[in-house]
Nucleic acid binder design. Structure first.
Lengths: 353, 353
DNA sequence: CGATATTTTGGAAACGATACCAATCTTGCG
DNA sequence: CGCAAGATTGGTATCGTTTCCAAAATATCG
């Protein structure tokens, strides 16, 4: 603690080299240094060299905070995410960060723990930090606080598989859940399933809502029965919902898990209840999970490219930042079947109208 | 593009309310507004009320960029991570971000794609952005470029399971891999295994290095044979290394996978080669993975609390930022055995010296 | 060669806050 | 009541850039 070298504590390190010092060393004005470094056209070669020499000699690096203040742009975007430890979101974040960085932007990441209040709070904080734009994977699409925070922020926004009707510069990237869910349901129907359940996320979130609607629509078209259990994207909900499904008078013969968290819950309850997949119940999950290929049986999944989704979200934001009009883009989902989908075993199978 | 409402494009929105405007509205000096808002002691009640009223009326929110410039602190930290889509890192990031935010800090996240060059580049960028500190989960511990960048940055740093000998304000959070690996190896030995392989990450990274050293040490103590296959933390390395292990004259009877990526590769190769776990080979992995409990058999794992690691990393950084001396903290690892560990089947098992 | 036109450059004023200092206003007390 | 001590307040410089404007230097041309 107490330094033995006197006169050292006085100097607060070498501080940092400012543009002013570069200017002094080069014997020119600060404004000229700025011009050289920002590639202004009217700069003589001699000036450029003097400045660049001084920059190199001093190891000068511009202060991005000062730059941000003066230019009114921070080259920073905020990403509000429910929980970065969700593999879905962390892949999106990876794609987005990589793409943004290549365009010179940095990314502030905040976790809202799936709480709408935190969403709103974080949006306000990011606005104060003067981010140039927002990437939002919100906990709720219709929380008034969040809506208010978004519209007040007056920033370019890209929604990640979320829908909000708000005026402003708002683009969105959607996953086309319809195709994947429809393919999955039709495949189940082909195997004779006539009661299909969806253990779903909260219906105020686009992915869950669209999946539920699609299941209901396709089931109606096929004349079969659908059951939707809405809840949160958690293992707990997966377990509880599955338990209640299995307790039904006529339990579903196939279950679609609405997320990998939910899948874990579903699997736990199925194991507990000694139900075998696919003999007792067929199983499909949304968004593939790393080790799924080694499960016995491997779980069929409705998949999409999360990384790509992040990249698209980032490019939509870059578009907005360059002044283009907002728009939405959609990425496909595909159904990859597997041995977790099997034929219905006729046990106490009553024919339903 | 061409707006039909004339006179709209002129106003660049309501701009933003500055402290000056608040001061004007309250009929006081800007410095007084600053004092009120920063909780300066000497402020009369009447002044406080006038200012707060004006603040509320105008909806003023301070500009954190300007504040950063003037105060010389951005209340921002940078987190350099190999790849946020790695569940290990995303959990750490979650823990760190949450803890930092509660202390008023925001987190800039950058992915280095496990490239040391990018590590260094990102550190420089973050320094230019004037972050107050760094959280580093580096791609390499001895890349000169990275070392240089870190020491030039002159910032408080916390290393996340990485070792670097560098002067400066550098703390670290370590996982105590020794205990977990030792427990795992002893358990294997109890089951009669006398040739144990570790499909490992790169040995210039602490986790891989410590695990390898521990395996070697314990194997020597027990008088058994160890094989370490160093490489990258990828499925490809997992596959290739496993293939080469299985091709040995006397293949190992137990394999430890050095990461979840590696585990996937190991499993793929074992499946391809029709080796059964644990009958043909016992299997243990490092860092549990979500669905592991549903694998047949479930995979034994050496575990640690990643989230907690992130929290600790954050608090070490907060310590440094408050002026405390650097230090290291260690979190435990535990070995959780399971059916993937079994007795050695005496086939062509020669007794080794 | 002188007078415009065009580059090139330096100086000063921002960006939006904070913090120091000095001026003013209260108080307390002899 | 007068004055020193303390509480409050306003004004100004500053953080490190960029950008506007005008001055200086150079180029162009009849």
């Amino acid at each position: 603690m107490a330094s033995s070298s006197p006169g050292f504590a006085k100097r607060p390190s070498v501080s940092r080299i400012s543009m002013q010092e570069v200017a002094q060393r080069a014997g020119v004005a600060a404004s000229s240094v700025s011009r050289v470094l920002s590639g202004h056209p009217n700069v003589s070669d001699i000036m450029r060299n003097r400045v660049l020499d001084a920059v190199a000699a001093l190891g000068y690096e511009p202060d991005l905070v000062a730059q941000s203040l003066r230019r009114g742009a921070t080259m920073t975007v905020g990403f509000v995410v429910g929980n970065i430890s969700n593999p879905l979101l962390s892949e999106i974040a990876l794609g987005a960060e990589t793409h943004l960085r290549e365009a010179g932007y940095s990314m502030l990441l905040v976790n809202s723990m799936n709480k709408p209040d935190l969403d709103a709070e974080h949006i306000r904080l990011l606005a104060q930090r003067r981010v140039d734009g927002l990437l939002l994977s919100l906990a709720s699409e219709d929380s008034p606080g969040t809506l208010d925070a978004v519209s007040r922020a007056e920033l370019p926004v890209v929604l990640v598989d979320r829908e909000m009707t708000l005026r402003g510069s708002i683009s969105a990237v959607y996953a086309e859940h319809e195709t994947g869910v429809e393919a999955a349901v039709r495949e189940l129907a082909l195997h004779g399933h006539r009661r299909i359940a969806l253990v779903n996320g909260p219906s105020d979130l686009r992915p869950a809502r669209v999946r539920a609607n699609t299941l209901r629509r396709v089931a109606r078209q096929l004349g079969i029965t659908s059951v939707v259990r809405s809840g949160s994207f958690t293992t707990e909900h997966g377990e509880a919902a599955t338990e209640s499904l299995l307790a039904m008078a006529e339990p579903p013969t196939a279950i679609v898990a609405g997320s990998n968290q939910i899948l874990v819950g579903v699997l736990r309850e199925l194991r507990r209840a000694h139900r075998r997949v696919p003999d007792d119940v067929s199983l499909i999950t949304c968004d593939e999970v790393p080790l799924a290929e080694f499960l016995e049986p491997p779980i069929a999944a409705i998949e999409r490219d999360h990384h790509e989704m992040g990249v698209i979200a980032a490019s939509l934001l870059l578009e907005l930042l360059s002044g283009t009009a907002p728009r939405t883009r959609t990425i496909p989902t595909t159904f990859k079947t597997s041995a977790s989908v099997g034929p219905v075993k006729d046990k106490n199978e009553y024919r339903k109208v």
